[in-house]
Computed example of a mutant assay.
Amino acid sequence: MLGLKTDQEVLGELVKMKVPAVAELMERHGVMWTLVVSRWFICLFIDILPVETVLRIWDCLFYEGSKIIFRVALTLIKQHQAFILEATNFPDICDKFKQITKGTLVTECHSFMQKIFTDPGSLSMATVNKLRESCREKLLSQG
């Protein structure tokens, strides 16, 4: 489970960099990333996004590597930032994260896949690996 927790923490760090208002909302309400994105990472979006979209994501995942999972997650969060920021409490935030995986953004897989390569901006494997290393160390030091 260390790898799963590490990648969820990496997503949290990426959100701090790329969608800081959402990161601040999560922190203010004490919502841990594991509560809202565990299924995204465990299932690689199967049963979360439409099948056609998931297959396109997996195609990119096999070709480009694990940074695709972060691109998908960041795009979902960034595209729904205003909606997520409407949340006023812990349960509301969790509900918003369930809702952002539905709708036309994800059912129109061609345009969604284009967005995952533009919306998050630059995201190299070197950045992901550096964040993984620091997040893993942090988790190991916490016990």
Rank of each mutant, 00 (worst) to 15 (best):
Leu4Lys: 08
Lys5Trp: 03
Thr6His: 01
Thr6Trp: 00
Asp7Ile: 03
Asp7Arg: 09
Glu9Leu: 09
Val10Ile: 01
Gly12Glu: 03
Glu13Met: 15
Glu13Leu: 15
Val15Ala: 14
Val15Cys: 14
Val15Tyr: 14
Val15His: 14
Lys16Asp: 11
Val19Gln: 13
Val19Ser: 15
Pro20Lys: 13
Pro20Val: 07
Val22Ala: 13
Leu25Pro: 11
His29Glu: 13
Gly30Ile: 07
Met32Arg: 03
Trp33Ile: 11
Thr34Glu: 03
Thr34Cys: 07
Thr34Met: 04
Arg39Glu: 06
Trp40His: 03
Ile42Pro: 01
Phe45Val: 04
Phe45Pro: 03
Asp47Glu: 13
Asp47Cys: 12
Ile48Leu: 02
Leu49Thr: 08
Pro50Gly: 05
Glu52Phe: 08
Glu52His: 13
Thr53Arg: 00
Val54Gln: 14
Val54Tyr: 14
Val54Glu: 14
Val54Met: 14
Leu55Tyr: 12
Ile57Asp: 00
Ile57Phe: 10
Trp58Phe: 07
Asp59Lys: 12
Leu61Ile: 06
Phe62Tyr: 06
Glu64Thr: 08
Glu64Met: 10
Ile68Leu: 02
Ile69Cys: 10
Phe70His: 14
Ala73Leu: 02
Thr75Asn: 02
Leu76Asn: 03
Gln79Asn: 05
Gln81Ile: 08
Gln81Met: 12
Ala82Asn: 15
Ala82Gly: 15
Glu86Arg: 13
Thr88Lys: 15
Thr88Phe: 12
Asn89Asp: 05
Phe90Glu: 13
Phe90Tyr: 15
Phe90Cys: 13
Asp92Gln: 06
Asp92Arg: 05
Asp95Thr: 06
Asp95Leu: 05
Lys96Glu: 13
Lys98Leu: 08
Lys98Glu: 04
Lys102Met: 03
Thr104Ile: 14
Val106Ser: 07
Glu108Arg: 12
Ser111Gly: 08
Phe112His: 00
Gln114Arg: 10
Lys115Glu: 04
Phe117Trp: 01
Phe117Met: 02
Asp119Arg: 01
Asp119Asn: 01
Ser124Gly: 11
Met125Phe: 05
Val128Tyr: 08
Leu131Glu: 01
Arg132Met: 02
Glu133Thr: 04
Glu133Arg: 00
Glu133Asn: 02
Ser134Glu: 10
Glu137Asp: 11
Leu140Ser: 00
Ser141Ile: 04
Ser141His: 12
Ser141Glu: 14
Ser141Lys: 14
